[in-house]
Each structure stands twice: as C-alpha cells, then as structure tokens.
Design a protein around this nucleic acid. Structure first.
Lengths: 151, 151
DNA sequence: ACACTATTTGCAACTGGTCGCAATTGCATC
DNA sequence: GATGCAATTGCGACCAGTTGCAAATAGTGT
C-alpha cells in the first residue's frame, strides 16, 4: 500500500482534492492486479462506501487516467477496463471477427512512440494499447468460406 | 456513384444480402467526404427511408466495418465516427487534456503494421487510427502550473 | 476553531449504442 | 412467379457512461 500513498501524493500535487470517494477508487485499483471494469470497481468501492454514486467513480477514473496513474483499455467487449499504470506494459491485438485477444510486447511500439515525441512533441499513452483487426485464423477462414463468421 | 456500386458488389460477394437499409447506409457514407457520426448517418438515411430503425443502421455499420469498406474512429468525443475507407489514410493524435486532434501521416504506422502481419499473422486495421496522449502544449503547461487544465 | 469558496459529489434525466426475439424479407430453387 | 428458409429488421427494453445543476465539502486563510 505504499503505492497507494504515492498515488495520493500525485493527486494532491496535481492540485486536486483528496476526497473519500477518490481515495477508495484509488485503493481498489491499487489493490487489484487485474483489469477491472468500471462496474466492478463500483461494486468493490461500495464495500467501503455503500452509497457512493457511480458518477463519482467515473469522474475519479477519468481524472486518474488523465493524470496517467491509471490506464484504460477498450478491448471491444462493450466495456472499458481500468488498471493501475505499471511499467512496462503489454498491448493487445483484438480480432474484430472472433473477438479473440492476443498479447504482444510493448517494445513493438517503442519506435513509434519515440517518433511521435520527437516529431510532434506528443506523449502517446501507448502503455496499454488495443489494436483492432483480423487475426490469422479469421483471415484465412474468410478467404475460403465467405459466409462463416463466429462471434 | 460507381463507388457505390463496387461497395454493393463487395457486400454481395461476402455472402450478405442487399437490403434497402444497407443500401441507403452505404449510399450516405459513399456520398459524404467527411467523418459522419452514427446519428448523422441515421438522420441522412431517414431522408430516404423515414422509418428506418437505428439498430439497422448500427448493424449495417458494424458489418461494413467488418468487411473493411468503412472505417471507424473514436476520437474521444463520446461518439464514434464513420467514413468510407479510402487509401491512403491519415491518423489522429488526440490529446486527453485539451481534446485537440492532430493529423499525422499513415506512413508512421507502416513498420508496425508489417511487423504485426509477419510476426503474428494479424491484419491490423491501422487505416484510421486514434492515439491518445498528451500534446506538446499540455505537457509543458502541466509541468509549470499543475492546476490548470482546459477542456 | 471558523468562514470562505472553488472543487467535487449526488442525483436524476439523458445519450449512444446493444440485444433478444418475433415478424419480415432477400434471394436461391424450383 | 411461387415456395422456403436463413438472414435481416423493427421494436422495446436494456446497458454503460455522461451531464447539468443544486447541495455538500476539502483545503486555504484567519
């Protein structure tokens, strides 16, 4: 939980207030080592603050993402997932057809990331990235049998 | 409109039916040279088919995207935007803080795209991509004055 | 400890998008 | 041009997430 403390510090340093709501959202994320959906976060937070409102959770998550303390990934499952920002990170290849998710190493992105920073001064959040496309299986399958597509 | 015809062909070839709903969604997208939100597409389609249901539009768009005829971009404005798939394409750098959008050349992605295909057999839809992060202006600003962040 | 005020929260209404299912329809075959 | 049936649509309920606004409160200064 020293991590938790650090996070609280970053928040305050960036000029934001530390409310019990934010504190508990942070705690939940810091304590978990998996991806969490907003819904799951809300449920866990409510164990400590039963009446906490969902907009508070969403607003906290938005802020934490903006501050770079939390990463957000849309794996195309209809809900966004949050995770404490840890280094280094993996990325995801998400197949639009079969919805499979494949992890890839973060180093694949380093060149691009550096180039964006040097050319445009843009600090890309490429720490936890989802790329959509068609996986090997689905590419070959559709080439043979146009009609079939699983889901 | 020859383009429109080609699109219809691709649809049929992939084993899908050509319904008036799909046809009009396609026509609207093919006729427009800007990004269109689903809502805008729905509105335009209704000029021809006044009672067309929104789910039909969404389902058509999903299909067209899957077939690669249409590209979909989430610029973080709370709504996804659709566009006819034209080559070559630009990409977008979206600042999480000031929400500004900056276009960049598609060639920045070619290496990555090739690598994903050769290493994983994954055909990434990198034709129209949005990368989130912090733009130059916002990086320097937050370093100086932690509190300020426009929106 | 108290007052002040900008930030944050709770609430409830709203929005964009999805889903299950019954009714309809494109199109292949006769 | 009629038949059959799987693909597709319409519908309404639903879901995740957002927003505007009035009420509450963290943190600053006294």
């Amino acid at each position: 939980m020293t991590q938790h403390l650090e996070l609280v510090q970053s928040l305050r340093q960036a000029g934001h207030r530390l409310t019990p709501q934010r504190e508990s959202v942070l705690a939940v994320i810091a304590d978990s080592h998996e991806h969490l959906s907003a819904e799951e976060i809300l449920a866990r937070v409510r164990k400590r603050y039963p009446y906490l409102n969902k907009s508070a959770v969403y607003r906290s998550l938005e802020l934490l993402t903006e501050l770079g303390l939390v990463t957000l990934t849309d794996l195309g499952h209809g809900r966004v997932e949050y995770e404490l920002h840890r280094h280094p990170h993996h990325h995801h290849l998400v197949c639009r057809k079969c919805k499979s998710v494949q992890q890839i190493d973060h180093r694949l992105f380093q060149n691009l990331q550096k180039k964006l920073e040097s050319d445009f001064g843009f600090r890309a959040d490429l720490d936890h990235f989802a790329i959509f496309g068609t996986c090997r299986k689905c590419s070959t399958r559709t080439a043979k049998n146009p009609k079939r597509h699983s889901h």
